[in-house]
């Protein structure tokens, strides 16, 4: 993880992941209906992993709180777009607070609002959380996730509580999701090479020396936290329009672990790492799922016992960390491979 991260603008670093993403969406996403669904949810997860990359990758501080931002983003976008009669029904069943029923906006306006609301929550909580350091910071962000989950799960006045809110309008077009993901890549790339990104990595490398150079750790971390909170909110919003529902349980421990592990397995210091991590873990999961269901994978039929899929995914993850603790890409950005390799 050390000494990595780009500082200078390089067109291949930026275009590489975008082109790979376009190719993946085109060839994999267009292959069949089931692959299309997987590609769509992978694109949402990728945006989420990008959000984590901005904060966790650059600052070196683990955040479990981004699940809360995705939860809030998903909630806002779902509540703003779900048909009024469904919310009305939810009112009859669950005592939903009345002013929440009528608002209705366009999906894309809803996505922007969900990113903004998540950014606002990140700003308010970040003022407190970013004062902390080290492990305390990680656990404190966990407290944020815990509070968000606890409140949304139990409070039926503000949302569907432990039930799912159905009828959230779908974004069926792969290319729109792809466009959102590409916009996220561009934003994250420019954050990473900006002064904020560079100073943040300086605080990651040496938390003693950075303040001595006049960097306010609190300030740079807070800015990054807000920006990455906004992107996580967008990812949550996108996911609600891919799944067609909003459910609190979707954004708790499992979601947090999966997205963090995608980041770490790919290599937390780069956008390329976020892309490789997200799609490697999604692909492994999918291939194993097909093996479990006794479907042929690339023409080869291998059957594995039911339930062993999750074990293998988690094991792969541990093995990758044992093999390369910096992740598959070792935190490097995308480069066109050269034929002649130095050392």
């Amino acid at each position: 993880m050390k000494h990595s991260g780009v500082t200078k603008f390089s067109i291949q670093n930026l275009l590489g992941p975008i082109i790979i993403l376009i190719l993946l969406t085109h060839f994999v996403g267009g292959a069949s209906t089931s692959l299309q669904l997987i590609t769509q949810s992978a694109l949402c997860l990728f945006v989420m992993v990008l959000a984590l990359q901005v904060f966790v990758g650059n600052s070196g501080v683990l955040s479990f709180g981004h699940g809360a931002f995705a939860l809030i983003g998903s909630y806002v976008s779902a509540m703003l777009t779900a048909p009024v009669n469904i919310k009305d029904n939810a009112l009859a069943m669950n005592q939903l607070w009345e002013p929440l029923i009528s608002p209705q906006v366009n999906i894309y306006v809803a996505l922007v609002i969900s990113a903004a609301v998540s950014a606002l929550v990140a700003a308010i909580t970040g003022v407190f959380l970013m004062r902390l350091n080290g492990l305390a910071a990680g656990i404190a962000t966990f407290a944020l996730l815990g509070v968000a989950y606890n409140v949304f799960f139990n409070n039926k006045k503000i949302g569907p509580g432990s039930q799912a809110l159905p009828g959230v309008p779908l974004i069926e077009n792969n290319w729109i999701l792809l466009l959102l993901a590409v916009i996220s890549i561009i934003i994250v790339y420019f954050i990473n090479i900006s002064k904020i990104g560079r100073t943040l990595r300086a605080t990651r490398e040496d938390a003693m020396a950075a303040p001595a150079l006049g960097i306010s750790i609190f300030k740079v971390r807070l800015i990054a936290f807000i920006l990455s909170g906004a992107i996580a909110g967008l990812a949550g919003g996108m996911y609600s329009h891919v799944a067609g529902t909003f459910q609190v349980q979707d954004y708790y421990l499992e979601f947090t672990f999966i997205t963090l592990s995608m980041l770490i397995v790919g290599g937390s210091a780069s956008i390329w790492g976020a892309l490789v991590g997200t799609f490697t873990i999604t692909a492994i999961g999918q291939v194993l799922l097909m093996m479990e269901q006794d479907l042929p994978v690339f023409g080869i039929q291998v059957q594995i016992p039911l339930g062993s899929r999750a074990v293998i995914i988690a094991l792969t993850f541990v093995v990758v960390l044992l093999w390369r603790s910096g992740g598959i890409t070792n935190g490097k950005e995308f480069r066109i491979p050269k034929l002649k390799r130095k050392s």
Partner: peptide, 11 residues
């Protein structure tokens, strides 16, 4: 890095 160890322990 302790963060990597923590994530490995999740795994």
């Amino acid at each position: 890095n302790p963060a990597v160890m923590l994530i490995a322990s999740f795994g």
